[in-house]
Design a protein around this nucleic acid. Structure first.
Lengths: 339, 339
DNA sequence: TAAATAATTTAAAATGTTTTAGCAGCACAG
DNA sequence: CTGTGCTGCTAAAACATTTTAAATTATTTA
């Protein structure tokens, strides 16, 4: 019933020519290979007529290129990563690349597995927001001269391209802003691990506090744990906090819900600022001040660097570190209200 | 430098046996093919030792199976689709399938291109939230006996598996709830097109109003247009509205922002309910009442049906239509406050 | 012990491409 | 005419698997 898909051999046979000729023509190498214009026309016409499409698996097998980019994010359902993924996907498709993706949930083993799967599928390039502990795997990719672009965070022991934001300054700046607003007991609630972006955010917060000789009040959260319980406990036990900087949108989302539950008013009881802008923070009333990452720019840089490497076969290009700047989007929620 | 990747031929040569034997063993067909236990052990040990991994492209080329599922959503950065994607991805990976995905933005042509790309890449199955106008393409997939599961909406003219929610009743029920709260001028603001979920939501809204002889106040929005302008205009021009049902989370997100800008208080001036729950609505104060889709269940059903078809080679299984029920999550924002 | 049967293992074909190396045919110079 | 160089095309190898059909070896059976 379903007529078997045409192969290049069928095309060649039906036209009584060699498949080599067909292949050359279809790959735009007609001039280079001195195929006559007549022949080119004949083949193209026929190919179009019968709707022949090369089998990309066979093509990939032979060429070693799959025209696929592996995208490894922390969690595709997180608005930050979702937006980046959307933009990257868009730009990749426009350049003839497909995306195959997965979420790591910061699980090192899962990430290793995924890298191995992607490698297996012969993806041409990797875009990764790496958890800790995958240095070896990434090094090994790089040794095989695979294009790899890290983003959101980087691995200090590896020389790769990466695109991140100035996390330390951003956190410093946000904290300073709170200080400027008159808050004196400023806490940092954050998902914490050894990833660079988190380390830097914590550093920035500490720097700002040190400048004013304020006491550090830090609640570090592990990624997988149930955040509700630990944040609730923290907020209950620590009296006197008048402002909170949240390290990620996820932390803030939980935090705000809990503050509502506990009857803590924002910003009257406690003012807040969150990393990563999102609709949720804009919709909240009062609107939440955020450290907005330039998602569009990040995606643009990531894909540009990657395509560059892909086109140059990674030859001769030096690695680039792109550090973009965030915007402190000041909204109602961190502004001191007169009592 | 980078030692070439081992192939099954290398394994066979190094062990002085045939690659056929290796292949059988690696594919778990040892007993069936009566390979001696000694041989099996020897091969497995060696394979493990040298870390050989079969080239999946070659495998796919030969077998016609790619162990890949194509996931086509409307917009991966939308929390609803992001969550579903995350869950589907998770379950797929657990069953040995990789996901390759794309967003359609409800663009028919883009969707056609994507389906064609996926077909090209020999994905084994499709999960699609289809825009209008792709009936032919999907029919053609089905004719080639490709497993296809639609979700969020279905195509009335095609007999496929699909997983949706009871949109009509959900909208009816939400509207009734507003009526029950004493609202009398209830508008529907929604992204509108011929997709079943949207048609049904509008129907449900109308049904409820008709029951009470209330006037329909409907603002239909095209997907691509800038929503801000048209919603603003609508809200300014239509006086007397005391409640709004939003057809999607996107509509509501825009709507709420605009209401804030216009100084319209929720729910005192206008109460609202939105389709699709999300953090943004829970964080909002007052919290927004929503029609929550059972995302987890949907993902579960989708992947179960698909895997079923994949395993049965789609033979003999009748198509299933799964219609799940939503929850009306009642929160502050639609509850009449005493004036 | 020869024949039949069973137990292992394998050669070769097939999957659909790209690419290398080179074949014919022809014009022209020596 | 012989060698050189171009033009236009192609045969065959290579990519790494799976699978069919059969070959080899071992074990019974008569």
């Amino acid at each position: 019933m379903s007529k078997k898909r045409l192969s290049i051999v069928d095309i060649a046979n039906n036209l009584n020519i060699s498949k080599t000729t067909v292949s050359f023509i279809l790959n735009g190498r007609a001039k280079e290979k001195r195929i006559s214009a007549d022949m080119v026309e004949k083949v193209l016409k026929y190919v179009k007529e019968v709707g022949y499409k090369p089998n990309s698996l066979a093509k990939s097998l032979r060429t070693g290129k799959s025209n696929t980019i592996g995208l490894i994010v922390e969690d595709i359902s997180n608005p930050f990563f979702g937006s980046i993924a959307r933009l990257i996907e868009d730009k990749a498709y426009k350049n003839g690349y497909k995306i195959i993706y997965c979420s790591t949930y910061n699980d090192t083993q899962k990430t290793k597995d995924m890298i191995s799967m992607f490698r297996d599928r012969h993806v041409d390039g990797y875009i990764i927001a790496p958890p800790e502990g995958v240095e070896e795997d990434i090094t090994s990719l790089i040794n095989e001269s695979m294009p790899v672009v890290l983003f959101d965070r980087y691995l200090s022991t590896i020389d790769t391209d990466y695109v991140v934001v100035n996390n330390q300054f951003s956190a410093y700046n946000a904290t300073q802003y709170l200080v400027g607003q008159g808050y004196k007991n400023i806490a940092l609630i954050t998902f914490a691990n050894d990833q660079t972006q988190m380390v830097d955010r914590i550093k920035g917060y500490k720097m700002a506090l040190k400048e004013h000789n304020f006491k550090e009040i830090i609640k570090e959260l592990p990624f997988s744990e149930d955040l509700t319980e630990s944040i609730t406990a923290f907020l209950k036990s620590r009296k006197g906090i008048d402002a909170i900087l949240f390290g990620t949108n996820r932390d803030a989302t939980y935090g705000i819900k809990i503050m509502h539950n506990l009857g803590i008013r924002i910003p009257d009881d406690i003012a807040i600022i969150s990393f990563d802008d999102s609709d949720a923070f804009e919709l909240h009333s009062p609107q939440i001040t955020t450290v907005a990452q330039p998602v569009e720019d990040m995606a643009e840089h990531i894909i540009t660097i990657l395509l560059d490497k892909l086109n140059n076969n990674g030859v001769g290009t030096k690695n680039q570190s792109v550090v973009l700047h965030t915007d402190l989007v000041v909204r109602g929620s961190s502004q001191k209200t007169k009592k």
